[in-house]
Amino acid sequence: MAAGTHEVEHHTSLGVDNRKLLMWIFLASECLFFGTLISTYLIFKGQSLVGPYPDDILDIPLTSLSTFVLLMSSLTMVLAVYGAQHGRLGMMKAMLFATILLGVGFLGFQVYEFRHFAHVGLNLGTNQFGASFFVLTGFHGLHVGIGVAYLISLLFGSMRRSGLGKDRALWVDTAGLYWHFVDIVWIVVFTVVYLIPS
């Protein structure tokens, strides 16, 4: 069918790009992945028999700052997609770079938080809170880390080849979907774990 007629576009018979379709299917399954982790967190909520308890150690202002950083990375990401789609290569690269920096910044906050918690005596095995908190936010952090690597590979890729076809725009677009998804997961985690009082 479409195979062989185009080098760059991989439309399915559905009329959508293969890579985007694949990414959306993947994200739909990721909903279940994080849904399970969030459920576990909620089930364990208030069940810890020993401290530290969430109220003792969660730092809401600091996490609001890291949430802000991640939100802004979504903005730079969407501007990178915009640059790619409108053939503005410089803008795309700059915005990809900014997104990578903000993503690394978010991870920095998380590393600081994890180390701080370990310091005050909360780790994976301390209590139900520790177990479900670290697994949930740890897997989210892992997703951010993978996203950063993904964007770095795109940035390097865009430096090697010249020109900016529709194909490149689609790669950036697809990476953007992943990145924004990781952001919305954090929107939920931030509310459920940090903002809602126990």
């Binding site: 009329g15 299917i25 279940l32 969030i38």
Partner: peptide
């Protein structure tokens, strides 16, 4: 494409159902 929206809503709805059931 509406297809993407449906896919995502499907995954999200499954996850919500899982959360409520658990």
């Amino acid at each position: 494409s509406r297809l993407f929206t449906r896919l995502f809503i499907f995954g999200f709805a499954l996850a919500s159902a899982l959360l409520i059931a658990l």
